[in-house]
């Protein structure tokens, strides 16, 4: 539709040509403007755990605690990304049935999905997934519980730091707690289309 393109751009130019002067881009430092008022300097790991809890996510301290938590919820059938399974497998006993192959047609059979995250944001309790480093998109989305394994070195303090690290992966997504809605009478319900549980494990 070259016609529509030309038409729109010429109308836009026409509309703007009447302006005696255009509004300038303000000069600002995002990191300074967005810095929150704080009583004390933060410990990133403690802050991440606390913020994740505040959005109804779950922070686990190590692989053994992760296995115990999943078992406690009764989630024993799931998928784990092959790249992280060797470091977790020793903590998962015979009561678990974990597959390292995700099959689209078996979407409803996985109670949990374990994938890598590319990083996390302490200030908001957010995990960061990307096409290149977090396995397949459905595995972190379709099962009721999603576990992300986060490299400790990639724990960003705040949003401006995480934005600066976005990079050139074709797709990144920030996930802050379980999928939720308040469409029905403003009442908060978790687990709408995505996970009803978001569990995070820092490693390394």
């Amino acid at each position: 539709m070259p016609d529509d393109r030309d038409q729109i751009l010429s109308r836009v130019r026409g509309a703007l040509s009447q302006l005696p002067k255009r509004a300038a881009m303000p000069d600002y430092d995002g990191a300074v403007e967005l810095a929150r008022s704080r009583a004390r300097p933060i410990d990133p790991v403690a802050e991440f755990a606390e913020r994740l809890k505040a959005v109804n996510g779950e922070f686990v301290a190590g692989p053994a605690e992760l296995a115990a938590s999943l078992r406690g919820h009764g989630w024993t059938t799931g998928y784990c990304e092959p790249e992280v399974w060797p470091s977790l497998a020793p903590h998962f006993d015979g009561s678990f049935a974990v597959s390292t192959e995700f099959r689209r047609e078996r979407l409803d059979d996985y109670q949990f999905g374990i994938t890598r995250a590319v990083g996390a944001i302490a200030e908001t309790g957010t995990i960061i997934l990307s096409d290149g480093a977090s396995g397949r998109r459905l595995a972190s989305l379709a099962p009721w519980a999603h576990v992300s394994v986060i490299p400790r070195a990639r724990l960003y303090l705040d949003i401006p730091q995480a934005i600066a690290a976005l990079g050139s992966d074709p797709n990144s997504i920030w996930v802050t707690g379980p999928s939720k809605t308040a469409d029905v009478e403003g009442i908060l319900i978790e687990g709408v289309h995505g996970p009803g549980a978001e569990i995070a494990l820092l490693l390394g």
Partner: peptide, 24 residues
């Protein structure tokens, strides 16, 4: 919009799915 510090999903898309990514 919803009185959250951040919305649950913020997705950043540069183009078609990455090489080796089966979904999307």
């Amino acid at each position: 919009g919803t009185a959250q510090q951040l919305t649950v999903y913020n997705e950043f898309i540069l183009g078609p799915r990455g090489a080796g990514q089966p979904d999307g």
